[in-house]
Amino acid sequence: MAKKPSVAFVLRPFDGLPGEPDWVAMREVVPAATATVRTTAEHGSRDVVVTTVLPEGWPALHRADGQVMVALQTSTGSGDASRDVATALLAALELEPGTPVTSTGLPTPGPRLQDVLDLSVPFTVTVHESYDYWLTPDTERTTDVQASLDEARETIIPTRKLASVESAYWCRMGEREYLRWAMPHDEQAMVDALARLHAARQSAIGDARFIGYFRSSGVVVPVWELVPGTGADALEQPAEEFEARFAEALADPSPLDANARRARAGLVSRQVTLR
């Protein structure tokens, strides 16, 4: 039996899409959020809702009202998340309304999101406090339906997207608060910039302490821990101020000094790579 061709691993699967860092954030750190994209004319110029998750881990859903939804947080992958999501999206477009895509298997080489979506449409994320958006406006909220939504809502980590900067998300986990900020810059240059700021004691955002970074889908996501009770609103201006400092550090072509090299080594030793 001939072996099926496999999908090549792609380090930055969402590279080239509008809002790449937000795609990564929705895939990894945001519990409940949506953004609307549009397919190309070849694929019907259809508006599609990209969501973090769908009921029962479905990869996609052609809702009863005709709305197509596709999820980013799924349990399987081929090594190219863009190809995986595109496979689910295209499958959902072919289904009758009211039908979920329950499984896609491992995709073979084919169209990616960059081929399927109209790249002129901005990727604007809306964070939700519940999963009510799963339902159509006329869905009957039976006791079972409401109980299921309530149970799902209890798993949501309170999250807010900052308005003053791009792709930065505040969250509260128990009594602790964090800011996780996905950035699209080259990893080596970005870590150098973070190291410069950390060594110069300029890596804090207000009273939020920079604690390191993780990497996901080829994008670096720095993390800050906040003083409990800070909240998201208090971060808006300090985040803008940090962004200006970071841009200056990112543009600095000079070699790292000894303090910055030590800071960089510490950051790299603690970094974590997610899928």
Rank of each mutant, 00 (worst) to 15 (best):
D22W: 02
I205H: 05
V272T: 15
G77Q: 12
T34L: 03
S103V: 03
G44V: 08
S6Q: 12
D84Y: 00
D252A: 06
T102R: 15
A33K: 06
R270Y: 02
T230I: 03
S217I: 00
W170D: 00
W58P: 02
P111W: 07
L11S: 09
D186E: 09
L89Y: 04
Y178K: 11
F210G: 13
T155Y: 13
G174E: 13
S164H: 06
P238N: 08
Q146L: 14
S216Y: 01
Q114V: 12
L113N: 14
R27H: 07
L113K: 15
P18A: 13
C171G: 07
P5L: 08
G19M: 10
L162D: 04
T102D: 02
A163W: 06
T104Q: 03
P253F: 10
Q67M: 14
G98I: 05
A199I: 04
T40M: 09
P253L: 08
T136H: 04
H185Y: 14
Q73R: 07
P18D: 13
N259G: 09
R153V: 03
P18T: 12
A251Q: 11
P21F: 04
L72H: 00
A232C: 01
I156E: 03
D22I: 04
D15C: 10
R112Y: 07
Y213C: 06
R153Y: 02
S216M: 02
A200G: 07
D192M: 00
P97C: 03
A247D: 14
M173L: 10
M190D: 04
A251M: 04
D80I: 02
P222Q: 13
M190Y: 04
W134I: 01
R261E: 15
T76G: 09
L267H: 07
D84C: 00
A86M: 13
A263R: 10
L93M: 08
T155I: 07
Y213V: 03
D132P: 03
G218C: 06
V24K: 01
V219Y: 07
A199H: 14
A244R: 14
E96F: 00
A260V: 02
G266I: 06
A41R: 14
V223F: 01
S45M: 13
L194G: 05
P21C: 08
D132W: 03
D150K: 08
A81G: 01
D233A: 10
R245V: 00
H62N: 12
I156F: 03
A147T: 13
A81L: 11
S148P: 01
Q202W: 02
V24P: 02
E241R: 15
F123T: 11
V272E: 10
V53M: 12
V7D: 15
K3H: 12
E248V: 14
S75I: 05
K4N: 09
V220L: 06
S203T: 09
W58K: 07
E129D: 13
E248K: 10
L162Y: 03
E175P: 11
P5N: 08
G44C: 15
D233R: 13
P5I: 10
